[in-house]
Amino acid sequence: MYILECANGLYYTGSTNDIERRLSEHQNGEGANFTKKNLPVKLVYFEEFNRIDEAYYREKQIQNWSHKKKKALIESKPQNLHDLAICQNKSHFRNRE
């Protein structure tokens, strides 16, 4: 599972069994449409798994995270992940009071 930072500052999360090949594909405009439109990209984070289905599961988990939460993961700030996972909408705060 890997995270790329695109030229527009946004993150792209994917999974592969060959990170070097996949990164090359992204850089050459042969990857996902999102990265193709936001070149160049750079690899900023990756995790290794024994099975591709585990990597795919982790990819889907992280894809649903906010930009700030992904950044905390990339910057190895696990203490921030919990706080960033807490719902920040108004109804959540009303229900906590």
Rank of each mutant, 00 (worst) to 15 (best):
H82S: 12
E5Q: 15
F46M: 05
S76C: 14
N8T: 04
V41Y: 00
A32T: 07
I3P: 03
I19R: 06
R21I: 09
S91L: 12
I86G: 00
F49H: 09
Y56R: 11
H82K: 12
A7C: 14
G9P: 02
A7K: 15
S66H: 08
T13D: 00
T35I: 08
A32I: 05
N28V: 02
K69T: 06
K77C: 01
T35R: 03
S91K: 10
Y12A: 08
P40H: 07
E59A: 04
H26F: 12
K70I: 09
D53W: 09
A72P: 04
A32E: 11
F49N: 00
L4P: 01
Y12E: 12
P40E: 07
Q27I: 05
R96F: 04
K42V: 10
F34D: 05
A85R: 01
G31I: 02
R22Y: 06
P40C: 09
F34L: 11
I19V: 12
T35D: 01
L73R: 08
E75M: 13
K68H: 07
I19W: 01
E54C: 01
E59M: 06
Q88F: 00
G29I: 09
S66N: 07
A55H: 00
E20C: 07
G29P: 05
F34Y: 07
L23I: 11
K42C: 13
I3F: 04
I19D: 02
S76P: 02
N80G: 00
Y11Q: 03
G9W: 05
S24N: 14
M1H: 08
P78M: 02
R51G: 02
I74G: 05
G9C: 01
C6L: 15
Q88E: 04
E30D: 08
E20I: 14
I62T: 04
I74K: 11
N89L: 10
Q27W: 02
Y56A: 10
A32R: 11
Q61E: 14
D83W: 07
F93S: 09
T16C: 13
R96W: 04
K77V: 02
E25N: 15
K77Q: 14
S91M: 08
G14N: 09
R21Q: 15
C87H: 03
K71L: 15
D83N: 10
A32H: 15
T16M: 13
T35P: 05
N80Q: 14
H26R: 08
H82A: 10
L10W: 06
G9H: 03
K60D: 03
P40D: 07
N64P: 00
F49V: 02
K71C: 10
K90M: 06
G31K: 01
K68W: 06
N50A: 12
D18M: 05
Y56K: 11
Q27C: 07
E25Y: 12
N80A: 08
K77Y: 06
W65F: 10
L23E: 05
I86S: 00
R58S: 12
K68F: 10
L84T: 00
I52A: 06
E59G: 02
Y57F: 11
A32G: 07
Q79M: 09
K68Y: 03
L43W: 07
